[in-house]
Amino acid sequence: MFSYNQSSTPSGRQWIALSTQSVGIGQGGTVSMIARVSLVDYRGRAIIDTYIRPTAPVASYRTPQTGIEPHHLENGIPFNQARDFVASAIGGKILVGHSLWQDLHVLGLTHPAIDTRDLGLFLPFRVTLRNLNNIIGLQTLMHQLMRRQITVSVQDSVGYPLCQEP
């Protein structure tokens, strides 16, 4: 018989959602470099939502998808400062997001797998949508499971984490 121990359920203070947006560097702008980071707490309050100053010349701002333009990054915070803040904020927390491996990669961070909830990899969602072998996009998940439409024109770096609350 299965018994449920409610005391082992994480409290809201232990959850944090992450979303990043990247611009393209290198030839053709095919290499992603972080340009914006957003962290949202369990209540939907932005902990940080900031642009990050580029550390290399930007070849593609990916403006149609991100809404990011050169003037956004001119006053961005230094990459190391953003990375250190995010590392401190997510330490010891359960990290929620979509395609988190990409967000963590552009930040140069890792997070324990046991404390990571990636909606793109969550098997029950993939089973429900009969798509076991593919990562399902956040827009599709939101539309199919919650009947909510997100990303009408450009990505919303704060809105994405709000969609991902546990």
Rank of each mutant, 00 (worst) to 15 (best):
A17N: 13
L18D: 08
L18E: 05
S19D: 15
Q21I: 06
Q21M: 12
V23N: 00
G26K: 01
G26Q: 03
Q27C: 12
G28A: 10
G28H: 12
G28I: 05
T30N: 15
T30E: 14
T30Q: 15
V31I: 15
S32F: 01
S32Y: 02
M33D: 12
R36F: 13
V37Y: 00
V37E: 00
V40R: 07
D41L: 06
R43A: 14
G44R: 09
R45D: 14
I47T: 08
I47A: 03
I47N: 03
I47W: 02
D49C: 11
D49H: 08
T50K: 11
T50R: 13
Y51D: 11
P54T: 01
A56L: 14
P57A: 11
P57W: 03
P57I: 06
V58W: 04
S60F: 08
Y61R: 03
R62D: 02
R62K: 15
P64A: 01
T66Q: 10
T66E: 09
G67V: 08
I68N: 00
I68T: 00
H71S: 12
H71Y: 13
H72I: 06
H72W: 05
E74P: 00
E74M: 10
N75D: 14
I77C: 08
P78I: 05
R83I: 04
R83W: 03
R83L: 04
F85M: 13
V86D: 00
V86P: 01
V86T: 05
A87M: 07
